[in-house]
Each structure stands twice: as structure tokens, then as C-alpha cells.
Design a protein around this nucleic acid. Sequence first.
RNA 1: GCGCCCGUAGCUCAGCCGGAUAGAGCGUCGGACUUCUAAUCCGAGGGUCGCAGGUUCGAAUCCUGCCGGGCGCGCCA
Length: 592
Amino acid sequence: MSERDEHEELYGLAGLGRSLERTLAEICPVASQLPPAELTLPPKPEFGDVSTPVALAVARLASRNPREIATELGERWCAGPGAAVCARFEVAGPGFLNLFLSDEWYRGATRQMLALGGDHGRDVLALAQRQKINVEFVSVNPTGPLHVGHARYASMGDALCRLFSFAGHDVTREFYLNDFGSQMLKFGQSLAARYAQRLGIEMPVPADGYLGDYVLEVADRLIDEVGDRYLMAVTAAAPDATRLPDEVVDEIKMWGRDAILARFRVTLERLRVPFDVWTSEASLYAGGTAYRGFAGEVGKALRELDTEGELFDSDGAVWLRTTDYGDDKDRVLIRQTGAPTYFLSDIAYHRDKMDRGFEHLINIWGADHHGYVPRMKAMFSALPPHDPERLELIIGQLVNLLESGAARRMSKRSGDIVTVDDLSDAIGVDAVRFFMVGRSHDSTLDLDLDLAVEQSSKNPVYYVQYAHARICSVLRNLADGQGDPGDPGDPLSAPGAVSFGDVEVGPFERNLARALARFPLVVLDAVERRGPQRLHGYLGELAAEFHVFYRNCRVLTDDPEVAAFRAGLCVATRTTLAKGLELLGVSAPESM
RNA sequence: GCGCCCGUAGCUCAGCCGGAUAGAGCGUCGGACUUCUAAUCCGAGGGUCGCAGGUUCGAAUCCUGCCGGGCGCGCCA
């Protein structure tokens, strides 16, 4: 690393931390055995601008007093690599090293962030960590509209994908359409019954069928499309929809699937969730040569499991011995009736995903499916490359709806549900996206519908968006007043070239600049922990720092260096807020 | 009964791969607009981090047990 690069590195918090660790390794070679420690932002200004507990961590390994190590590290680093950016240091408490950064560090950090623009925080993953990842989420039977739970998984899944991609992973968003099996049969029969009713034939929706109004709408469109093509079939079967011939139900079912699927696409597009791949479960049973009576990907999967010796026959069914891999019971793949289970489809599906060259698979599921996890892990142990680590299952807890303070129960079959579109109508897509990633995926989420409809300033998304709009306004005023886009001192026209002279950096500017400098660390943290709520929380904090800064520091001032520096902070904040909101799928309005 | 998740301020929750005096929003109370957007800011009040043990220099964080709540435990998906 050249001296100049090394100097530039110090203007980012990650680089600052690395530099400290290199110096620490010179003092205590065992330090290199430890995972990289993070710089922390101290709770009080007396504790410095940034702080590190790294001496505490290494003290035990080195069998040395942590305060001694911290002192030696501080002396050595501040006199050497950190000389230009660190004003002084203190050792506090049990062995914290607190660094007091110079104004030059703040100017340099701001200059660097401006030069990076929208790339501030991008590609934070080391090259070796970057992977080709498939993220499967929302996946559902196409038997009815998406509900609020799906809004959560869609928002979280998409935010994770955006974060992954920004951090350096190669990401594919995939939707698995469960258009096969008994639920689809019920749906087909329900739709056929509604169709029959529209033609004046007595045929109730079968028991356990789908009663929602949307089935009526789909039936209307079916009639528009095919007229009375199935009149004879439904007349013959009436009044029992379950007596309809298979080929008729199949046709109606697939027609219904396409209608529901079209709605999914519209809903998800509105929610700004762009799926790259849609895979149909039914399609896994088509094509190729049959094995054990199954064609397509399913046949391939069965053949491979047989090759691996993982299948056995019992009670007239075909089983996978998942108990060999930690599941608490073996699982049926082909029923006594000869019909495949959902698990068999899933094996074929995941085998195919691996075949498509993904290094890592992530599935996001609702908590009501968590009992399925052990058999999925077992599947990955049974199939080449026999590595359950390749599959990561993120279990999202459920969403409770509160109405007038009481829980609202929903039933999918009866059609009494709050849909994603209902929610988007009520509070807007920005609020849905922001709210749904506001807490950890393993906490249940209570959504207060009364509050959601209120659309007031209680909604935290406005707080962050307002900070962005406010900055845009300030910068518009700045451009109007100074109006010289060719001025190299204008951070708007040449953000990377501004030096800010030796302008003094006040406490509000320091806080804002430090918050901005944290962004790459937040992105990395959110990616590694699969926690978009960390970015959500950070954006609130960054917006708060900006609002305080704005309150205390006039940007439009007579001193050109002060104005340039403050405008530079504004530009960097605007860019960072916009990027952070974009990563959550939320818009960044220029005025409000 | 077994498994997974949760239990932190009046409410909703962050923080949890051990670090300094546990944070935010909402609600409550009191302040701040002749100056770049008051959807903002400042201040006050509010806590046995469910309980009990254990590990540690140090525990909201790790381990064990218990209590309370959610979700699962099909040859459904």
C-alpha cells in the first residue's frame, strides 16, 4: 500500500480500525488471531471521537494488562500512522483506547465521502466474501391475494437483496410458485364452483374451499374468456364440485393460477420488489425422462437420491431417511396413493437451484413453517455436495394486526384478510417498506391499523424523508444564491476537489460527519447479520444528526470555507440518506 | 409433552458473535420560529433488561433451570 493510499484509508472508519490493528499486531503478535474488532462510537464526548476495546480483547491472549497495551498502542499509533488525523488519545476504564480525531480527519473524511458519492459504503465485502446468492422469498400458493405477512417478508427479503448487492454479492431474487398439490386442487374446485354459479348452476364452494370475493372476480373473468366452454362438465358434476373431471379442474385451476399470478406481479411491482426468477412447482414435474414414475426435475432428484442410497420403501410409500441427518422422523416423498409430497417438490426445486450455480441459498419463511427446517437441512446433507451450510433459512415471525387496540384475526380461506394492496392503499408504499423492516425478523410485528391509516408524523419514515427534503431545499437555495457551477470551491459542482482549507470543525459538524462515516460499517453489519432493521435504525439516527446540525449551523454563511464545508456535509448526507432509503425500497423526496 | 422465537421505560421496540453511566420513537409535562422547510429542535420525567442460579476482571448479551406469550410438531402446503 502506498503512503498516499494509507493516508486516504484513515479517512474511513473501517480503514482507521485496520490501521490500529496493524499497529496492535506489532505490539502483540497474537492480536492477529482475533477477528477484526470494530471501532465504537463512545457514549459521551469525553470518551473521544472514536474508541476501541481491542486492547481488552487481546489482553487475555497476551497475558498482559489491558491498560498497558492500550497505552502502548495509543502512543505508537498516534506518533506513527495516525499522526496526521489523531490529535490525542486517552486510555480509560479497564482499557479502552479513546481517540480524539483532528479537524483534518473530519475535513478529509468529508472530502472522501463527497468524492465517493453514491459509492460511499458500496462493495464493503472483501472479494473473498462475495458470493453468488439466491434469495427465495414470499413463495406461496397462487390461491389468493398476498396478505400483510407477505408484505413483511417481501420488504425484508428485497431490502436484504439490495443490501447484498450493494455490498458486493451477486444476488438473484426468486419467487417459488406453489401451483401444485391439494391446495391448488381446492382452489380449482372453488373457482369452478363460482364459475358454475355464474352460469346459474347450483354448485357450492366445496368444504375447505376458498370463499374470498376475489374468486368471484376471477370467475367473472373466466367467463369473459371462455364463455360456457365448461357448461356441460359443471352441469354433469353439479352440485358437487369435487366430482368434476380432473382435466376440467386442471384447466380451470391453471387459468386461475395465471390470474392470481398476474395480481402478484402487480402487487409486488407496486411494492418495488423486482423478482428476477419465478419458478413454478408444477413445472418441476414436466420434461425429460421419467424415473420412479416422475419426469422433469422431480425424476432427476429421485434418481440422485437413489444413487446416494437415501431412499427406502415402507408402508407402500417412498421415504427419505432424514433421521440420518438430525431430523426427528423420516419423511415421505411419494405417498401410498402415488402422489408426491410437497417435500419431494422442494427437494427437486432446491437441487435445481444448486444446479444453477448458486454458492449460497437463502429462504425466507414465515414462522409457521419453522418445523420444516430440519428436513430441509437433512435434504442438503443427503444431496451432493452434502453441505447443509449452503442453505440458510431465515424464519420471519408473524405480523399481528391491531384494530381499535384488539387483534384482528384473519382467515385465508374465508377471504377475510388484509392484503398487501389494502395496506399500501392505507399508508403508502414508503411507509409499508420502512415499517416492515423496522424490527428484527425474529420478533413478531404488531401493526396498528388505526395508526397506519392515520398517516401522521408519528410515522418514522417521514422523519427521514423530511431530512432529505430539507437538505435538497438548502442546496437549492445555495445554488440560487451562489450560482456558479464552475467554481471549484463549490461542493456541488466539484465535490471531490474541495479542500475546505483549514476550516474549524465544530461539534455539530463533527457529529454529523461521524454519523456519515459510519454508513459503510452499518451496511456491512446489516449484510452480515441479515438485519435490515439496522439500516432502518441508522437512517433515523443520521436524520436526527442532520436535524440537529441544521438547527445549529447555518449553511448559507459569509465565510466561503465554512459554507463549502457545511454544504459538503449536506451533500454527503443527502447522498447517504438517499442511498439508505433506496436500499430499503423507500423513496427520497426532494420536497415535502 | 417436544422444538423454534420472543420477554428491556406507561406503549411499540432497538441493542444481544461479553465491554464504559442500557437507547429510540410514541405518549406525558415544560420550552424554541423576523434568519437556509417547525413533518424540526431543546429540556424534564420515566428501568429489579421476566425470575433464579452459573461462567467472567466485566453479563441485557454466554450457559442451566423456571415463569409468561407467539408459532409449529400431517403420507397438508
